[in-house]
C-alpha cells in the first residue's frame, strides 16, 4: 500500500486546497451556530445540543450526500478526462490500490469537513452555554460521516462506470435526487403498494442509506413515533431501538462497502 499512499495524500491535499470543502465546513459551522443561537433565545433550559442536532439532521441529509456523491463521481472519471489515469496506472500501482487510495483520501477529507464544521460549532456552543446532550451531538457527527462514506462509495462506483467527469456528476446528481428527495415521497409508497408487509418497510429503510441514517439519528435523539416516520416507527415497534440501530448501522456499512467492492471489481477489468 506504500505506493498508494501518495495518491491518498494527494486527494487529501486537493480537498484542503479545494474551496468547496472549506466552504461546506464553514457553512456547516455557521448553520449549526445560527440554529443554536435561535433556539437558545426561545429556550429556558440548556437543551442546546439536542435541539440543534435535531435541526441539523435535515440539513445534513441534504448536503452530505450531495458533497460525497459529487466528489466520488470525479474520482476516476476526472482522471480519465485529464488523461492522467494511464500515467498513474503506468506506475507500480495496481488498479485496486489506486481506487482504494482515492476513496480513502476523499473519505478522510469529507470526514474532516463534517467533523470540523460541526465540531467547531459544537465547541463554540459549549463555550457559551452549559453542556448537555453532547454525546448525541458527537453521535450525529459520526452518523453524518457514515452517510458520507456510503454515498462516496456509490459516487466512486458511478465514476468507474462513467466515461467522463460531466457524465459522472450528472448521474451522481440524479442518484442524489432519487435517494434524498424522491425516495421519501415515492419509494415508500410504492413499496407499500407492491407488498403491504413489514418486510417491505424494512427493505425500504435499509435500501437507502439516507433513510437509514435519518432513522438512526432520530432514534438516537428522540424515538418518538411521529418524528420517526412510518419506516422508523415500524422498525422501533417491531425490533426495538437497539436492534433497529444495529440493523440500520449495518445497512449503512454495507452501503459503504458493496458499491466500493463492485467499483474495484469493474475497475480492474477496464483498460486504462
Amino acid at each position: 500500500m506504500t505506493s498508494a499512499m501518495p495518491v491518498l495524500l494527494k486527494e487529501l491535499r486537493d480537498a484542503v486546497r479545494s474551496r468547496w470543502l472549506t466552504a461546506f465546513a464553514i457553512s456547516f459551522a455557521l448553520v449549526a451556530l445560527a440554529l443554536a443561537g435561535v433556539q437558545q433565545q426561545g429556550d429556558v433550559g440548556a437543551q442546546g445540543f439536542n435541539r440543534t442536532t435535531a435541526s441539523l439532521i435535515n440539513l445534513c441529509l441534504l448536503l452530505v450526500p450531495l458533497i460525497a456523491l459529487a466528489m466520488g463521481a470525479g474520482a476516476i472519471a476526472g482522471e480519465r478526462d485529464r488523461a492522467t489515469l494511464a500515467t498513474l496506472l503506468a506506475q507500480p500501482l495496481t488498479a485496486t490500490q489506486l481506487l482504494l487510495a482515492k476513496y480513502a483520501g476523499l473519505n478522510v477529507a469529507i470526514w474532516m469537513t463534517v467533523t470540523l464544521g460541526f465540531g467547531i460549532a459544537g465547541f463554540l456552543m459549549a463555550l457559551f452555554s452549559p453542556v448537555s446532550d453532547f454525546g448525541h451531538y458527537l453521535l450525529f457527527i459520526v452518523l453524518a460521516g457514515g452517510l458520507a462514506s456510503a454515498m462516496l462509495s456509490l459516487g466512486v462506483l458511478i465514476s468507474v462506470l462513467s466515461e467522463g467527469r460531466a457524465k459522472a456528476v450528472a448521474v451522481a446528481m440524479l442518484a442524489w435526487f432519487v435517494l434524498v428527495l424522491f425516495y421519501q415521497l415515492a419509494a415508500i409508497g410504492i413499496a407499500l403498494t407492491v407488498t403491504p408487509s413489514g418486510e417491505a418497510l424494512v427493505l425500504a429503510a435499509v435500501l437507502n442509506p439516507v433513510e437509514s441514517i435519518r432513522i438512526l439519528a432520530v432514534l438516537s435523539l428522540e424515538p418518538d413515533l411521529q418524528v420517526l416516520g412510518p419506516l422508523g416507527a415500524f422498525l422501533n415497534t417491531e425490533f426495538g431501538a437497539g436492534r433497529s440501530a444495529i440493523l440500520l448501522a449495518g445497512a449503512t456499512a454495507v452501503w459503504a462497502a458493496v458499491p466500493l467492492a463492485v467499483a474495484v471489481m469493474l475497475f480492474r477489468r477496464q483498460d486504462a
Binding site: S3, A83, T84, T87, P92, T94
Partner: peptide
C-alpha cells in the same frame, strides 16, 4: 504481477498528461 513488472518500466506516453494544478 503488473505492479512488480512496472517497477522495472519507465513510460513516456504519446501525449504526456499530468495534474495541471
Amino acid at each position: 504481477q503488473g505492479q512488480q513488472a512496472r517497477r522495472r518500466i519507465g513510460y513516456l506516453p504519446q501525449h504526456p498528461a499530468f495534474h495541471d494544478d
